[in-house]
Structure formats: structure tokens, C-alpha cells
Amino acid sequence: MKVLTVSGSPHFHAEESVSKLMYGVVFSLIPAMLVSFYFFGLAAIVVTLTAVVACMAFEFLIQKYLIKGPLTIFDGSAIITGVLLAFNVPANLPLGLVVIGSAVAIGMGKMTFGGLGKNPFNPALVGRVFLMISFPVQMTTYPQPSVLNVSLTDAVTGPTPLTIIKDGVSRGMPVSELMGQIPDYINLLMGNLGGSAGEISAIAILLGGVYMLIRKIISWHIPVAYLGSAAIFAGIFWLISPEVYPDPLFHLLTGGLMLGAIYMATDYTTSPMSRTGMIIFGIGCGLLTIIIRLFGAYPEGVAFSILIMNAFVPLINRGLKPKRFGEEVKNG
């Protein structure tokens, strides 16, 4: 007689798997990738490839020789880390630094804690912040967009809109005057501005976000809470003093806010589990980002704010439970 299989119910399993989800994220990143290639040219392609290969290589080496565990480099998570790391650094960053960043992202940010699903902080952001603090000059030398540039080194560099505003305001110049120095909103939306390789085009990132929402890879809670709270908080300051603080739309379209809200803050492992928790997490990220941007030493605060909120995730998970079915109303 045939050997039957005995297992616990259910006997149906959804078609979803970790690697399918991960490759779904990678797929959704393609529009942003294309925009970055378009504006930063060959340099962006090289940086992205280097980061992906380096991340996968470090994961492989650590799993093979240090942990001596099963290999999971093809589950797609290392690719995401690589792409996101590349998206978060200037496109003309020396490749050696990209490799160092990848090593820190995978080694310190992910494998130290036990690999996929165990890390408290977003690995790509750990890598980025490490580079930011260790190599501030290279990390803030942003190339200006120039269509289809094939050169690797000769990019024209210049400040990002956020830097222009931050420096200008600190010198006492009114925002309305500074706004003349930065591209208009249509260009900001399309991605024609200085910045990290992949964060420039809000519209491409939104497109990827919509794809992930439709495929149910992410839920709307974190992005909406993040962007919403950032807009509201920035709006309050803008209403108080429009000459010192730029308007909310400017905040949404510049820097890494879109990329952060849609890709970095929604990272499964480092975001809260319950819906309410996700909303609180998103609001926290939004507030911190605006506070850092307006009052902090750095012109950009997305990476720091997400990392800070990552640290609160265990607390949020503990405190904010989903609503239970048939929950009895407590007396008093």
C-alpha cells in the first residue's frame, strides 16, 4: 500500500512564500531603479549592482563559514538590502565604500542577530547610517541629475534641495527666495533633483508602492501614517512661519521620505505587527523626520527616524495588541 502523509490541518497552503514576497518587492523597485539609471547614468547601475552583489556575497560568506547554517542568499532579502542601500547613497559613491556599507548592512545589521526575521533594525539603513557617520564628505557629495550620463566619475555635484533650504534658512534667507534655487514641483515629482541614487523620483516610488499594495505585500497603514503625519507636522510649522519653514509638499517630494515611508519603514521584520501599532510607528517616524529636518544638525532625517522607531517596535508590539474577538468590556 502507498505511504500516506499525516500532518496537522490545514492541508491547503497559500501560494505565497518568503522569496515570492521578497522578489515582489524587488520587482516593485524597478521603476525607481530605471529613473535613477536615467538621471545618474552608468554610475547608478554600477553602484546598485555592486551593492547587490556585495550584500549577497557577504550573506553567503557569513552563512557558509561563520554560522555554518543553511544558505538563504536566494530568498531575495539580501537583494532588497543591496538595492535599498544603493538607493540610499549618492550614485557616485566610491565602490569601496559601497562594499563597506554592504558589509555593515548584512554583517552588523542582519546576520549578527541571526539573519532574516531576527534583526531589530533595517539592515540597509544601518549600512547607510554607518557610511553617513564614517564618510560624511563622500556621503553628502550628491551628483546632479544629467540625463543618460555614461561617465562614472565626471558627474557635476551639488547640494540637494533639503541642503539648500537648511543652509539658506540657517543663514537667515527666506524660504520663498531659496525656492528659486531648487527645481519646481513637477521636476521634484519626476525625480529631476540632486539626491541619493534611488530616492529622487517620488512618482516611481509611489508606483512601486501601489504595486505592493495591490499584491498585498504591504498594507497601507505605515506609508499613510508616515507621510500623513509628516505632512501635517510640516504643515503646522509652515502655517506658523512660511518664511522659515518650507511647505509640506516640499517635504514629501524631497529627500528620502517617499522611499523611507514606502520601502524602509514597511520592512516586515522591523515594523510592528498590529494595525494600530503600524499607525503609531508611522506617526512616530513622520514626527521624528520633520523634527530632524527642521531642527536637527542633518538636513535629512528619514534614516535616523526609522532606526529610532525600529527600536520602539518591541515595545509597540507588547503594548498595542490587536482587538480580540468578543473582548469583554472591562468594568470601571
Binding site: 505511504v3 500516506l4 502523509t5 499525516v6 500532518s7 496537522g8
Partner: peptide
């Protein structure tokens, strides 16, 4: 000799609740 194949969480506590054993 095993008559069936067990394919669930590798814990005796659950296997015991599920069936007599392979």
C-alpha cells in the same frame, strides 16, 4: 517500519495529539 509519513511540526507533543505514530 513506518506505515505513514509524518509532516508537521517536529515536536512529539503535537505528533502525539495527531496520530499513533509513523
Amino acid at each position: 517500519p513506518p506505515k505513514v509519513r509524518y509532516d508537521s511540526a517536529m515536536t512529539c507533543a503535537f505528533a502525539h495529539a495527531l496520530f499513533a505514530g509513523e
